[in-house]
Amino acid sequence: MDLTIYDQTTDGISEEQRELINKLLQFAANKLGLADSTEMSVTLMNNPAIKKLNAEYRNVDRATDVLSFAAEESGDETPIIMDPELAAELPVNLGDLFISVDKVAEQAKFLGHSTERELGFLVVHGFLHLNGYDHVQPEDEKKMFSLQREILDEYGLQR
């Protein structure tokens, strides 16, 4: 998977955090059977920046832990018709994740686990949203959270 990580935090993220995000998302992409050409980005930021995004895009005026913006949501768009071989070569852009490192630290402390576990949880949670998983309906929640737990456990980030 082609992953771009942006660091917009005031103090900067560590190389270990960058590596965790990259390796965990590669692991999760393999678990879902995504093509190597699949693309996405992760932007790490502080609470004031994610609060601004949350207010602008969700009309919620407070900081949140993770925001997912899927690039190719199904809708009323007119499909582009092209040669199937050419279409197979084009990368799929999943979209963008925005994660508050402040919330990572706050929630890890509150939940009594490591910041690595919390960061991994938010990365996988947002990644699954980009892949069409949701937790609005109970049956969808069960499916998403089960897969989320499976990915984290198999990767080695158990609770």
Rank of each mutant, 00 (worst) to 15 (best):
H129S: 04
E118Q: 15
K23G: 02
A63C: 05
A71T: 02
V104A: 03
N47K: 07
P84A: 11
E72P: 00
E139V: 11
L157E: 04
E150M: 13
E106H: 08
Q158I: 12
E19K: 15
G132T: 07
L94Y: 08
V136C: 00
M40I: 03
R62Y: 13
G95E: 06
F27V: 11
L24Q: 05
Y57C: 03
E19N: 12
S37L: 09
D134I: 01
K31D: 08
A71K: 11
A105I: 07
D153A: 15
N131L: 02
H113R: 13
G120W: 03
A29E: 06
E85K: 12
P84S: 11
E154N: 15
K142D: 13
I5M: 06
D65V: 03
L152C: 05
M144V: 07
Q137F: 13
M40P: 01
F145Y: 14
E19M: 10
E150C: 05
K23Y: 05
S41G: 12
E89F: 08
S74W: 09
I81V: 15
S14K: 06
L130Q: 10
M144Q: 15
T115Y: 00
D36V: 09
L90P: 01
Q8G: 01
L24D: 09
D83Y: 05
G132I: 08
F127S: 06
L119S: 03
L90G: 03
P138S: 12
Q137T: 12
G132D: 09
R149V: 01
E56Y: 08
E141G: 07
S14W: 03
V101I: 15
N22W: 07
Q107D: 14
L157P: 02
P138I: 11
T64F: 04
L157D: 01
T64L: 02
F110S: 11
F27D: 08
N131F: 02
D140P: 00
I151R: 05
L147H: 04
T115P: 00
L119Q: 05
F121V: 00
L97A: 07
E15R: 04
F69T: 07
T115W: 00
Q137A: 14
L119C: 04
P79F: 06
H125L: 07
I13V: 14
V124A: 10
E150N: 12
